[in-house]
């Protein structure tokens, strides 16, 4: 080892001076962007808690408050469109804080020339999704940008919900021995979107799992108020979500590969493109960290809910390897499940 040591300073790679697509991928670049740009500028201790929603004490009530923007391409996909997604996404961010979602706002940035038939289809899907979820869209905004300055339509939704008293949910709460529960199959949304992408596309009957998860959360909290935290593994997939929780709680995690449910369509696409379902986005799944003594009851409640029919216990929180997520392979060996820097790229060669 000695002769390898060198005092030469490694050539530093130039820091990227422009925002890359990867900065929005939910991976490590996104975390860098938050830390280096937004936190520095905003300096809010509540923001710095890095939860999916802010929890605020306002006039004796505990409010959950969150916002999300939707830029999905294609706008219409199997199992939904950007409209339904924009409702589900924000409802879920509230639900992950244990809140009962109440009201949403809707902001539209529409590209000049966008067709009314498409806009109507999108807004109708939004309305329908909101009614199903029991939330009202109560305020909104519309801007139209010149052709070429947008990509059809972008939607922002902001949501407010009420957090029941006595709840203490945080990604910093995971403790060694806790169980990791997942509400269903991984990667359905991300692979559905990918299947329609130019240059990569393939055919399948797979549908996005886009769905509002607040009633599932409610049913789970009904059997245990001691659940440590909920997260919906969207961009960056389960791997990024669990790495974030492990990091924030200062614990390790060990997953069991055989127990992680993946559909045959998702598997096929991942095999073909060299992708790992652990990093693929979901829009209707949640992961919960649950104390071991409540795990069975909570899993039972999940399995009884229509959105949790494929739920499974996929791993445990450990004292060992803090901040690191490790997966036990079918061969009884283990490997790291790291957070990716940016988007997962098709591994072709």
């Amino acid at each position: 080892m000695g002769q390898l040591f060198t005092l030469a300073c490694p050539v530093p790679l130039p820091a990227t001076e422009r925002v890359l697509l990867g900065h929005g991928s939910g991976g490590r670049l996104s975390a860098d962007l938050l830390r280096d740009v937004f936190f520095k500028a905003f300096r809010s201790p509540i923001l710095a808690q890095l939860e999916d929603q802010a929890t605020l004490d306002v006039g004796g009530a505990r409010l959950a408050f969150t916002t999300d923007s939707f830029v999905v391409k294609p706008l219409f996909f199997r199992g939904g469109n950007i409209g339904s997604l924009s409702v589900h996404g924000t409802v879920n961010d509230l639900a992950m804080g244990g809140a009962q979602p109440l009201y949403l706002s809707a902001g539209f940035i529409i590209e000049e020339g966008f067709e009314f038939t498409a806009l109507r289809a999108i807004t109708e899907a939004m309305g329908e999704a909101a009614r199903c979820a029991g939330v009202d869209i109560v305020t909104g905004d519309t801007k139209v940008v010149e052709k070429g300055s947008g990509d059809g339509v972008f939607i922002n939704t902001t949501g407010i919900g009420l957090v029941p008293p006595g709840l203490n949910l945080s990604a910093a709460n995971a403790r060694p021995g806790d169980h990791i529960l997942l509400s269903g199959t991984l990667g359905d949304h991300g692979i559905t979107i990918l299947s329609e992408r130019e240059g990569i596309g393939f055919d399948s009957l797979l549908e996005s799992d886009s769905a509002a998860l607040h009633t599932l959360v409610r049913d789970m909290l009904a059997v245990s108020m001691r659940i440590r935290c909920f997260r919906d593994p969207t961009r960056g997939g389960l791997a990024s979500t669990l790495n974030e929780i492990a990091g924030r709680s200062g614990v390790g995690m060990t997953l069991s590969e055989v127990d992680i449910p993946v559909r045959e369509e998702v598997r096929g696409a991942c095999e073909m493109l060299g992708l790992d379902p652990l990093y693929v986005a979901n829009e209707g799944k949640l992961v919960a960290i649950v104390p071991p003594e409540d795990s069975e009851a909570v899993l039972e409640a999940m399995l009884c809910h229509p959105l949790g029919a494929n739920s499974a216990r996929i791993g445990v929180v450990t004292e060992a390897h803090p901040g690191m997520v490790v997966i036990r392979t079918t061969f009884g060996t283990s490997r790291i499940v790291d957070m990716l820097a940016g988007d997962q790229l098709p591994r072709i060669c």
């Binding site: 990227t16 890359l20 990569i200 940016g342 098709p346 591994r347 072709i348």
Partner: peptide
């Protein structure tokens, strides 16, 4: 896909894309 991240001496293809280049991934 995986060629896009390979750093050249000053830039990778992702950075070219960010600067306005038309860089696409194909299977």
């Amino acid at each position: 896909g995986d060629m896009l991240r390979v750093p050249g001496s000053s830039q990778d293809l992702f950075q070219v894309k960010a600067a306005g280049g038309d860089v696409r991934i194909a299977y």
